[in-house]
Design a protein around this nucleic acid. Structure first.
Lengths: 191, 191
DNA sequence: CGCTCGTGTTGAGCACTGCTCAACAGCCGT
DNA sequence: ACGGCTGTTGAGCAGTGCTCAACACGAGCG
């Protein structure tokens, strides 16, 4: 008495790719890269390993695609809202970022830092994303970007990521205080 | 005409373990975890894979041992120097940290962040190290440690690690300015 | 309706890596 | 000399990334 084999579904190339990336997005936050096996992904998709390699040249290739997709979701979530006055954009971004971390908790660092682990290719995706975040931030603040400022903003991101991550686990300040502190710090840094 | 097999050397258990960890310390900064194969380590040590598994129950076990060794080296390097006045200890630590990053450049983030990648066990070693660094810092500053302060110092480390890492690659300020900036920021944070 | 062509899909199988286990080898004390 | 402790090995299993030649099923054509 075995479970009947699920019916084979034949999908268009685009659908299949999207499905596989979606599965990766589900699994990525919960699973360290090394433990994310092609077998598991294929099983969830109800296809053979071989088919996955038809769409992605290698595991690394698949993984970078998933990481890039995750980065796009984050960037979209943080990007400036039209119709909001320029001097409120930065505050809005910070609010949305904190909210994002509150929502995803454990997933957060996996997305943002864990992804860069081990594989230089994936690390590169992360680098690109960070640069885009810096652009977003400098834009929201209405500041020109020189190398020095970029470095400081990037480092401030590291500070923010770490602090918010800890804060979610053990809130030692009000939410409002947290946002204000981050904001103040960023301002002082860029004087 | 093949290279003659190297003579088998029989070592004491302690020596062997130390040798294996030392090899790991050489390889760790240059190689992502997933690409660090037991085969390679054994080859360099001139022993069989089996022997490595005799000393370390698993690859993870070996890897955590190496990571812990690396952490010990860093902690030792940063720990306060006897005979230096209390109010100069913090400055000294910062100087030594920047020097450390200058020396190891690429290795730096591998040690400090890359290690935490993927494996929760290894991440735990890193967590412990960070907590010890926080202790060291609060001690050097002569401040009592409450949870809020600890969080801020930890986040400040993230800031520092990231900024110094970037700065080494592209120095946008004097070395002295960098140290001063880090110092100022830490002070303001802990008021 | 039958045939072929294209494309989504698979199964068998290779190479490598982490890991186990039973057996071997060399040094020690008696 | 010899028995035993311990460092050491080789063969081999399981799982994982990856390849490749063949299969299946719908679309278009005669």
């Amino acid at each position: 008495m075995v479970a009947p084999p699920p019916p084979r579904v034949r999908r268009s190339a685009g659908d299949r790719r999207a499905q596989l990336v979606a599965i990766g997005l589900e699994l990525l936050p919960a699973t360290p890269v090394q433990e994310l096996t092609i077998d598991e992904v294929a099983r969830r998709a109800g296809i053979s390993r071989s088919l996955l390699f038809h769409y992605f040249a290698s595991k690394r290739d698949y993984y970078t695609a998933v990481t890039r997709a995750a980065a796009d979701v984050l960037l979209e979530h943080l990007s400036p809202r039209p119709g909001v006055p320029a001097d409120e954009q930065a505050a809005g971004m910070l609010e949305r970022y904190v909210g994002w971390v509150e929502t995803y908790r454990d997933a957060h660092l996996s997305f943002v830092r864990g992804a860069a682990a081990g594989d230089p290719w994936v690390a590169e995706v992360y680098e690109e994303t960070r640069e885009q975040l810096v652009d977003l931030t400098l834009g929201a603040l209405g500041l020109p970007d020189d190398p020095r400022r970029r470095q400081l903003v990037r480092a401030w991101f590291a500070f923010t990521e770490d602090l918010v991550d800890q804060w979610v686990r053990e809130p030692t300040l009000d939410r409002a205080e947290l946002v204000a502190l981050l904001r103040t710090f960023l301002d002082r840094l860029l004087v």
